[in-house]
Design a protein around this nucleic acid. Structure first.
Length: 385
RNA sequence: GGGUCGGUGGUAGAGCGGUCAAUUACAACAGACUGUAAAUCUGUCGCCUCCGGGCUACGAAGGUUCGAAUCCUUCCCGGCCCA
């Protein structure tokens, strides 16, 4: 089944459409994150108005609270949270990594127990033990009525040895196979079915990345994600990992770079042929007072087309200009830096909300630019070097 | 006028003979954040510094002591009570 359709190709950059049961999205696309069923601080209709077509939910978090059965009873996540666009759900694989690492850092023990069958977690909130397997993850995501389902994977930390990366990727493949089989059984006979994506692992090892991609493509998925990136490895390796993995992915399947990234990383990845992105940066950093601002530079891979400001810095105290005069968002068209700084200073919730609106608009507009066929991306690093 | 309690760094408020440039919180200033346990976390926060340390500091001035934010005396200021 063709899930991605080409409109245009510029070098490796792909401009096209992704078709799901809940609608069609233009790509390259940035997907705002709604881990627990809400893009923090924002109404779904606002997220849509900012230009988002797909949002992310998280299997693990929604499973624990409020529970997949409750969401199924509510009529699915779209209806429950009032989002009629596309929903991609992450499998919970990343939580194996992030919660495990956090538990280890805090309590000196890894609160995550992994076996061939699946993975045992502790709920960080109350200590309850849960067991997640590739099959259970699929079942939960089907209950959520997700449009794009991710297989349960293991996201190895960085650094990790070749041996560990190899056995981890092989387990991810075995899990992916089980997930696929279970998924096919579950959706058999349905007239509209969600898409199922596999996740390529292999850490920073070229042959392992290629092997992972090959194995997953052999199983056959509706789309392919590159996972285990931006977990601590040097930033320069991103280009390598993409170069190792993307070429073997069939042209008519979408490619999703999980969890990234900074604007220049997204530009670089789009130039390498990635179609889908998600990242907490715009919303989280917005809530923390960091705002993205366009410069007069055209899009490039070194990041000089934008800068960031910390709105809480004293220099903005009496700055009555907009955060970004080039931006068309609600914050920039109606408020000043001084006002936003004030809101942050006095802990008004509106501060995080306006900052989230602005940063998401920045990211979504970046994608709009990258989708325009006339947009040129300059490589200033090559020019300077 | 008498009695009594108290005056500590931007604020609140610990400390009551040495380990005190002074706990802590807030404020202030800066930084981090990449498939969100994150409206979170970290650092700085008297002055100077060759980052070893040096200097000035707990209302003021004297004093006791090897040593005082801590004890004594006087003064100044504030709260409360009595006249």
């Amino acid at each position: 089944m063709q899930t991605w359709e080409k409109k245009e190709k510029k070098g490796e950059r792909r401009i096209g459409t992704l078709t799901t049961k809940s609608g069609v999205s233009n790509t390259p696309v940035f997907m705002p994150i709604a881990t627990k069923g809400a893009v923090k601080h924002l109404l779904p209709e606002e997220v849509g108005a900012l230009g988002a077509s797909i949002i992310l939910g998280n299997t693990y978090h929604l499973w624990l609270r409020p529970g997949n059965e409750l969401i199924a009873k509510a009529g699915g996540l779209h209806k429950f949270m009032d989002w009629d666009g596309i929903i991609l759900t992450d499998s919970g694989g990343f939580q194996v990594f992030s919660l495990g690492a956090r538990a280890e850092q805090r309590f000196g023990i890894n609160g995550v127990k992994m076996t061939e069958e699946g993975v045992e977690f502790s709920d960080p909130k109350n200590g309850n033990r849960y067991f997640l397997s590739p099959e259970i993850s699929i079942d939960i995501q089907l209950d959520l009525d997700s449009d794009i389902i991710m297989v349960l994977d293991e996201c190895p930390p960085y650094p990790c040895t070749r041996e560990y990366a190899k056995s981890s990727l092989e387990r991810t493949t075995r899990w992916a196979k089980r997930a696929k089989e279970h998924f096919e059984k579950r959706v058999e006979g349905r007239e509209s079915r969600p898409l199922l994506f596999g996740i390529i692992q292999g850490s920073v090892y070229e042959d392992l990345r290629q092997e992972s991609a090959r194995q997953l493509i052999e199983i056959g998925f509706d789309g392919y994600a590159v996972g285990g990136v931006a977990v601590g490895e040097p930033r320069e390796t991103l280009a390598d990992v993409l170069a190792w993995t993307l070429p073997s992915i069939p042209e008519d399947k979408p490619r999703y770079l999980m969890g990234l990234g900074r604007p220049e990383e997204i530009v670089r990845a789009v130039e390498a042929g990635v179609d889908m992105f998600d990242c907490v940066i715009p919303t989280r950093e917005g809530r923390h007072g960091r705002l993205f601002v366009w410069t007069d530079q055209s899009l490039n891979v070194d990041g000089s087309f934008y800068e960031t400001i910390n709105i809480q810095n004293e220099k903005h105290r009496e700055d009555f200009t907009p955060v970004d005069s080039r931006c068309d968002c609600h914050l920039c068209t109606r408020y000043t830096r001084a006002y936003l700084r004030h809101l942050f200073t006095v802990d008004e919730p509106l501060a995080g909300r306006l900052a989230s609106v602005h940063n998401l608009r920045f990211y979504l507009r970046l994608m709009e630019e990258l989708r325009k066929s006339e947009t040129e991306v300059f490589d200033n690093t090559a020019k300077n070097g």
